[in-house]
Design a protein around this nucleic acid. Structure first.
Lengths: 136, 136
DNA sequence: GTTGCCCTTGAACCCGGCTTCAAGTCAAGG
DNA sequence: CCTTGACTTGAAGCCGGGTTCAAGGGCAAC
């Protein structure tokens, strides 16, 4: 029996109802049955939402999560897809970490700055000190 | 002689003219002199743009850069301001790095996944494995 | 049957840092 | 003087991940 209303799902998942509708719109959640126009959910949707949450924490976009969890995977081994995604994301995350480290070092150096104006501060004028730009 | 047009500045700084106007709008660049309505820049603006670039790489927002480099600092030691900014940003960057590290570990684990479906994958079901959420 | 809360939809708004567009103005070279 | 290319403005669009709003529809307890 699919007996949960969207409000009940939202309460149990500690999420806004608008988010659930949004996920449905973008294809991250499947369209549920309806009673008189109103969505009726199975408890399984809670598990689904938890999975989406983890995937988002891991840096996957909703589009990626949709492709990973949606239909079209029927029969396709999930492991492969996950690996493909991870292979693509790892270099990005590593680059992000490297850049963040450089930024951190710049900030630590910045705490010791005693310049009168920014125009003369080596933090800003020495190219060797500046953190790298974001990759395009 | 303030003789550079916005197009010349843009070319020499390798940025779009729209960006220069935008910076002016948000107060990151001062309003230049004009000749018949057209902006005329001093070469100093190139130095300014370079500083803005470094500050952005370091993760400062345009609002912060405006406050740091704009007037209102006349007489106020730049070092103090930079230090205040750095003190505020450092914990953020450190948190970012920590989170990114956790994400990286999750992705490395994900490469070894061989689950049939995401629903049963411990990557998604084990809370101890999930990367932390972003701080609000 | 009636109250009252929950549900529905589409559209608009938010954040930051720009870009792009349309329509109009002007400086400089021939 | 005339053309042409560069300049001007304000408004709107983009990205992602939602939230919020307004106006209306319906389910359920009493």
């Amino acid at each position: 029996m699919a007996s949960l209303t969207i409000g009940e799902v939202a309460a149990r998942a500690a999420v806004n109802t608008s988010r659930i509708r949004y996920y449905e719109r973008v294809g991250v959640l499947p369209k549920p049955e309806r009673t008189g126009g109103q969505r009726r959910y199975d408890e399984a949707v809670l598990h689904r939402l938890a999975i989406v949450d983890v995937a988002q924490r891991a840096g996957l976009t909703l589009a990626e999560i949709r492709d990973l969890t949606g239909p079209g995977n029927r029969g396709v081994h999930a492991g492969e897809r996950i690996r493909a995604l991870a292979d693509g994301k790892l270099p990005e995350v590593e680059a992000l970490i490297a850049r963040a480290q450089a930024v951190k070092e710049w900030l630590e150096l910045a705490r010791t700055c005693d310049c009168r104006t920014v125009d003369v501060c080596s933090l800003f004028t020495d190219p060797a000190l500046a953190p790298p730009a974001k990759a395009t």
